[in-house]
Amino acid sequence: MSKTRLEAFSDGVLAVAITLLVLDLHVDPGRPGGLFAQLAAEWPSFVAYVVSFLVIGVIWVNHHAVVRLVEVVDRLLLFWNLMLLMFVTTLPFTTATLSAALAGGDPGDIRLAVVLYGGAMTGVAIAFTLLHGRITAQEVASGRLDAAGRRRSLIRFGAGTVLYPAMTAIGLVSAPAMLALAAALSLYYLFNQTGAREDDPALGEKQP
């Protein structure tokens, strides 16, 4: 399989996942109380939407960054990529579940929704780290990256495998705090944590 086909398939799945997030946003202008009151009552949906949109958007950016480094699209790499996409596609469901639980106010429901949302995020972090590990192993084998550089890159990129479970534990106490931490982690990953030089001529393309 070509790298282009891998990226095209992944882009399609990520595009669907990020689009599905908006389906949980809805108001009824005809209901008593007015539109402003409905918008205020639906704040969990809007906050969760923004955070999850940011998460998936950053995943898309970083997926492009790591796929640029691929030298051979082998079966193990494909399976790690599919695992990543599996967890990403759960985010619309877990986002909607969390926002509904926050709107409902039942503490038990909120805690369960937090575990579902945090579990999906943790799954994304683990799968993405495995994918990145496979790709950087290829780089080491080809001589484009040394073992020490690979370790540093994996530590930076794999931080979410520890931080997302910690975020989930905090969410059991305060779900809004978990959403704030999820946004903060996305901002962390917004910066280049892959260890790749974007002006590397070996990648075959120049970045601005």
Rank of each mutant, 00 (worst) to 15 (best):
88 V>P: 12
36 F>H: 08
70 V>Y: 10
47 V>N: 04
124 V>R: 13
152 R>N: 11
163 L>Y: 00
72 V>E: 15
188 Y>D: 05
194 T>H: 05
71 E>K: 02
54 L>V: 12
62 N>E: 11
207 Q>A: 07
162 V>I: 10
64 H>I: 01
92 P>N: 12
136 T>H: 03
87 F>Y: 14
206 K>M: 12
84 L>Y: 08
139 E>T: 13
86 M>R: 09
95 T>G: 09
66 V>I: 12
170 I>C: 05
8 A>H: 07
192 N>S: 05
148 A>M: 09
125 A>W: 01
163 L>F: 04
54 L>S: 09
204 G>Y: 00
46 F>N: 08
139 E>R: 15
60 W>A: 13
24 D>F: 01
43 W>C: 04
197 R>K: 06
28 D>A: 09
115 V>Q: 06
1 M>K: 01
95 T>P: 06
81 N>Q: 12
122 T>S: 15
172 L>F: 15
170 I>L: 13
6 L>M: 07
13 V>E: 01
120 A>T: 09
2 S>L: 03
145 L>E: 07
55 V>Q: 07
152 R>Y: 02
23 L>W: 04
49 Y>C: 09
114 V>D: 14
207 Q>H: 12
27 V>G: 06
99 S>A: 15
164 Y>V: 14
29 P>W: 03
6 L>A: 00
140 V>N: 03
176 P>Y: 03
169 A>H: 00
1 M>A: 14
54 L>Q: 11
118 G>A: 14
71 E>T: 04
115 V>E: 14
107 P>F: 07
8 A>Y: 08
59 I>W: 11
94 T>Q: 15
104 G>K: 08
35 L>G: 02
71 E>M: 15
73 V>M: 05
195 G>E: 01
70 V>D: 13
201 P>E: 00
94 T>W: 02
165 P>N: 09
61 V>Y: 09
136 T>R: 12
30 G>E: 12
145 L>I: 10
150 R>E: 15
102 L>G: 07
178 M>G: 10
93 F>S: 08
160 G>Y: 00
